Computed example of a mutant assay.
Amino acid sequence: MSAPFEVLAEPRRRQILDLLRQRPRLVGELTDELGLSQPGVSKHLRVLREAGLVGVRQDAQRRWYELRLEPLRELDAWLHPYRILWDRALDDLEDHLDTMPDEVRPRTEG
C-alpha cells in the first residue's frame, strides 16, 4: 500500500489526478494546465502509470491519459477506519461544545 501514498505525496501528481478526474487528457493539455515542461509531465505520468493510478489509451497518433479508479478504491478502503475515528472525534467535540454555557462557548464565523 505504500507505493500509492509515496506517489501521491508529490503535489504535481495530485494536480494531474485532479485534472484527469474531470476527463481524459493529452500530455499537451496537462502541460498547459500545469505550466510544466512536456518531459516533466511525462515523468509524472510514468510514475502514476507504474502505480496503476493512471491508464493510457492510444487513439491514432494521440495518447489519452485517464484516471484508473480501482487503486483509489483500495486507498479509500484503507482510509475508511481512520475516517470513522475522525468522525467520532468530531462528534465528541460537538457533544462537548453543546454542553458548554453560551458565554464560554467559542465563537464561530458563519
Results as ranks from 00 to 15, higher is better:
M1S: 12
M1V: 10
A3I: 12
P4T: 04
E6F: 02
E6S: 12
A9V: 02
E10W: 09
E10N: 14
R12N: 12
R14M: 12
L17A: 07
L17M: 13
L19N: 02
L19R: 11
Q22G: 01
P24S: 12
L26K: 13
L26I: 05
V27T: 08
V27N: 01
G28W: 04
G28P: 01
L30V: 08
T31I: 03
D32L: 07
E33L: 10
E33H: 09
L34W: 04
G35S: 11
Q38N: 10
Q38D: 12
V41M: 05
V41P: 01
L48N: 02
R49Y: 03
G52F: 05
L53M: 07
L53G: 00
L53Q: 01
V56P: 00
V56Q: 09
R57T: 13
D59Q: 14
A60L: 14
R62S: 11
W64R: 05
Y65K: 00
E66F: 15
L69T: 08
L72V: 07
R73P: 00
L75Y: 08
D76M: 11
D76P: 00
H80C: 05
H80V: 03
H80W: 15
Y82C: 04
R83H: 15
R83W: 14
D87S: 07
D87P: 02
D87G: 06
A89Q: 15
A89L: 15
L90G: 01
D92E: 13
E94W: 06
E94H: 09
D95P: 02
H96G: 02
H96W: 14
D98R: 07
D98L: 06
T99M: 03
M100E: 07
D102F: 03
D102P: 01
E103L: 04
R105V: 02
P106C: 01
T108M: 14
